[in-house]
Amino acid sequence: MVVNGDAKGRINAMLYIANDALDPAYNQAFEACAFELPLREDVLLVWRNRRAVVCGRYQNLYQETHLPTAAVRGAALVRRTTGGGCVYHDPGNVNYTWITDARDGACERVLACVMDVLRQMGAPVEPLGAGGIAVAGRKVSGSARRVANGRLLHHGTLLVDADLGALRSLANGHSACYRSRAIRSVPAPVANLSAWLGGMDAATLAERLVAAFAPERIAPDLAGRAEALAQSRYRAWSWTFGKSPKFVFERAFDAGGAPMCVRYAAERGEIRQIHVEGEGGARVARALNGARLALDEVRARLWDAIADEARAQALLENLF
């Protein structure tokens, strides 16, 4: 068994809990349940998600990803409990979670261990700062952390053979239209590890990562609790969207040949005040005032207020 010591020579044994689910909300909940286990050892999870955009605890999800595009791309939207920025997941991306005691240098130790394994596999990785890992100057991994009750949850992404086109398309191109005090993401050029690992796929890298740490496998019964937490928190609109800090949005655009300008203030994911300039602006503002900023609700209200479907669609695209 590999043990992971700190600078003072204290060592923690490592336990591994398998989770083959691909459901992003369930997997966040599974990780949260693992974090709450009363264990003194280090705990490793290695897992993957179907396509998803995962934002940091205190981010404005609306600013980070464009809701209409996420719907077209079939991306689940999830809010996690760690800090940091927004990341893209799909089955070509491997996530690792490392739970350990919250001591000085714990995060650096975890990152060094992960980089060692990647180097042993053949990828010339280098630290990127702020918990990132790069190959040839391009980011292949980001990480974020949460500290509670003396324990650290450190998790990170590893782009192996992810759809980088989808990743790029899901960043919100309208992010400059938002004003808030939310934590912002720091965009970086990205790359997949696969090309540096002889075409290795994500499932293989996940297996190799676990094998490299040779942890003791345990199988606590987390499924029931994780499903309940996924339902009550990670699939709940009030968590994923409602926890976005209050913000102001302003955007001028062309709506089917007519110039329009929309300004609104939102709190807990609801439009609190809205002003719309341009043809039919007052009617649009009345229709949207108080609306929950969910795609279905905004679409239904717009389609009721505007007869011209092309204009309604243009408005929908430009309200997020």
Binding site: G56, C107, G131, R145, R146, A182
Partner: peptide, 26 residues
């Protein structure tokens, strides 16, 4: 608190009553 991509839950060091908040969220 969030700093450097870490969200840290900070606990009370004493029993007591929270009298006045001097910093706002954000």
């Amino acid at each position: 608190v969030e700093t450097e991509k870490v969200v840290c839950q900070v606990e009370a060091e004493r029993d007591g009553v929270l009298v006045r908040l001097l910093a706002e969220e954000g």
